[in-house]
């Protein structure tokens, strides 16, 4: 089977999802071509196991994100089944490439098997859909849903200069207030909900986050009512996250919140109400007030 992986980059290196995309392609029996937008991390891509060839696509268009321009520059290098990450940029480029080529796209895939049979969550995880694709298609894969490929490869790198007009110009950059890790990037997340009383109490969660290198998330209720940034919101109208560890503090577990975090690998719930629905998805539930549990958590994590 012919397969192309479009690499995802962050800053000046490959995003870790790239290796997962290659791992997933290999699991279908493919030796994928890896197309690298802007050429960032091409050598690193060439060293990943199972890669048949790296095409480093360079051009001015890669200095600004314009999904349309990127798709125009990358599509000619792609063949067969095209795989990207289900990140916001990955989804956009993938959708444009699919529309350009007139092939179907299936987004946010969490399972793949021969044929190709694809599973993905729908209704924000309230159901799962299994589909079969015949012919070429574009698929985007959810982060952390597939095992990474190993390293040790030594594929050739071809450089292609592709000049494409960009139709979007950045006029003003607004830096975020904090340098905190984003919930969609984090391997550990500690989230707070209405149960922690007031906005100021998030500082206690931030202290825990600092100890274990976690991101801080929030439920919709506190984003809407206390004015926490929407970028922190986990749930159906916020971010869908799949960290290794998700710690929910004072979050009752509305169906919309569960939709955004239920596929985390391990879930810890701290809530004073033993009947809170969040305990239904928790691997480890602690029935306690946050005032008692969070200092204990800080102490226990500090002494690890």
């Amino acid at each position: 089977m012919q397969c192309t992986v479009i690499a995802e980059t962050v800053g000046d290196s490959l995003h870790p999802i790239t290796s997962q995309l290659i791992g997933a392609a290999s699991s279908l029996g493919a030796s994928p071509i890896v197309v690298v937008p802007g050429g960032i991390g091409s050598e690193e891509a060439a060293s990943i196991d199972g890669v048949s060839k790296v095409v480093s696509v360079v051009g001015d268009c890669f200095s600004t994100f314009d999904g349309g321009a990127w798709a125009t520059a990358l599509s000619p290098q792609c063949n067969g089944v095209i795989i990207t990450g289900a990140t916001s940029n990955g989804r956009e480029v993938a959708a444009r490439i699919a529309a350009k080529r007139g092939v179907p796209i299936i987004q946010d895939v969490t399972g793949l098997s021969d044929g190709i049979t694809i599973t993905r969550p729908i209704y924000s995880g309230k159901a799962v859909e299994t589909t079969t694709v015949s012919g070429d298609c574009v698929i985007t894969l959810r982060a952390n849903a597939f095992d990474s490929a190993g390293s040790g490869g030594s594929a050739a790198v071809n450089v292609v200069d592709q000049s494409v007009d960009v139709s979007i110009a950045v006029k003003e950059a607004i830096n975020k207030a904090t340098e905190r890790l984003d919930v969609s990037e984090a391997d550990i997340i500690i989230s707070g909900g209405r149960g922690i009383g007031q906005k100021e109490n998030f500082s206690h969660l931030e202290e825990v986050a600092d100890i274990i290198g976690a991101a801080v998330g929030a439920s919709r209720a506190v984003v809407d009512e206390w004015g926490m940034p929407h970028s922190m919101q986990v749930g159906q109208t916020g971010k869908t996250v799949t960290p290794s560890l998700y710690i929910a503090v004072g979050i009752s577990g509305a169906i919309q919140h569960l939709a955004g975090m239920r596929s985390s690998k391990y879930i810890v719930a701290i809530n004073k109400d033993p009947e809170a629905p969040i305990f239904g998805v928790a691997d480890y539930g602690i029935v306690a007030t946050w005032e008692d549990a969070v200092p204990a958590l800080k102490a226990a994590l500090s002494s690890l």
């Binding site: 799962v128 299994t130 589909t131 694709v133 549990a293 226990a300």
Partner: peptide, 28 residues
């Protein structure tokens, strides 16, 4: 170009472990 084979409810998670009180935090 695609055919939907089936929809299914999300996989049930096995019940987790539940603890009472903040003293259990260090255990968790």
């Amino acid at each position: 170009g695609i055919s939907i084979d089936s929809h299914s409810p999300p996989a049930e998670k096995p019940p987790g472990q539940k603890f009472e009180g903040a003293d259990s935090v260090s255990t968790v």
